[in-house]
Design a binder for these strands. Structure first.
Lengths: 202, 202
DNA sequence: GTCTATAAGCTGATAGAC
DNA sequence: GTCTATCAGCTTATAGAC
């Protein structure tokens, strides 16, 4: 009855600990020792599961990308109106935040500033960028916007802005307590409105 | 005739080299050796000018903050119209970029993800955040906007968004080649327009 | 067979002595 | 300016517990 599961989640605990520490303190600043201690895993076990720290970092980024994509899928599945589907980007971020608690902005952008270009985790950064661009272009097109490319660029600007505000708020406590995500969504909705009603806008 | 200047710019060369390397490769990933080599300075000389790497990092951030502030001052001095003065934020970034070439987004935000909260350079990150907020509130107020706080938050969202787009573009080459800064300025100008003409907006 | 505990080697960076 | 001590972080090896 009180038996441990047949496959003890050593790898799982490593990924969880790595996710928390890498995101909270930065990748370079987080030592392997800290991850091992938090996960309660011995070095030998870790190196049996991952080739090294770089591989652990890559797995951390891959898992984060996967969860973000699933969250967005989930929100999209609840939306029918084409404009709502386009704006679902912001709702998905809100849900991801409430679920995983990413109070320090975009993990992929943070990783991009820390990792060299040939790091094994780098493909995940590009995957994130590509997913955002492609989906937004599709959704904008489906919403009947004249220039999907333009729409994607505008929404990405607001999306990146909101995430960056979170990152800045994390470093400077005294900031005004408004919600950047709600603001970004409002601005996006207003902009989409101008695109739908006035074909000459731009 | 070929005499070196009376005050050889050892400290200056160090700050220049540090600025280039820290910004391009990240602070944690850049070793002191690399800075010394690029500056052509010996370790002893460096430790005579700076207590250690942390102090060098703090000086790098301080200098960057100072130059950014001066650039914005410069642009502001050329603007008379209150709305132009409010939008000068984006023109100042453009000028700073063309002058210092910051192709990888906001150095302070990047530093914020890399440095621990008790790092000696941390006050500069807060100084940057404070300068942005205070100035924008003042300029928004002078421009006659109803809610300067709201205006500052909106412009900061767009400002952070543009800088974040630069950072993302640096990691993923295949992105569309539009100018996020021009887009942010356009969106800001349009939003300000709604605030001036329609007092009930929000 | 999988995981833990401990310890030691290696690399490179920081710091300081000469 | 050179050269070396010191230290931290990553990795691997050994030995034992469930």
């Amino acid at each position: 009855m009180t038996r441990a599961p047949a496959t003890p989640p050593a790898r799982e605990r490593l990924l969880t600990a790595a996710g928390e520490l890498f995101y909270a303190s930065g990748i370079a600043a987080t030592g392997v020792d800290a991850v091992l201690t938090r996960a309660g895993v011995s070095p030998a076990t870790m190196y049996a599961h991952f080739a090294g720290k770089d591989a652990l970092v890559a797995a951390y980024l891959g898992r984060r990308h996967e969860r973000w994509r699933l969250t967005w899928d989930e929100v999209l599945a609840e939306r029918d109106d084409p404009v709502d589907r386009l704006l679902s980007l912001f709702d998905a971020v809100a849900r991801y935040r409430s679920r995983e608690g990413n109070g320090r902005g975009c993990a992929f952008l943070a990783a991009a500033t820390e990792l060299p270009a040939d790091h094994p985790g780098h493909p995940w950064l590009e995957a994130d960028t590509r997913l955002l661009g492609e989906r937004l272009r599709e959704l904008a097109s489906a919403a009947g916007l004249l220039d999907p490319e333009e729409a994607a660029a505008t929404l990405l600007l607001l999306y990146d802005g909101a995430l960056n505000r979170f990152a800045r708020a994390a470093t400077t406590p005294g900031l005004p307590g408004d919600d950047p995500l709600a603001r970004a969504r409002r601005l996006a909705a207003a902009w989409i409105g101008t695109q739908l009603s006035d074909p000459r806008a731009g």
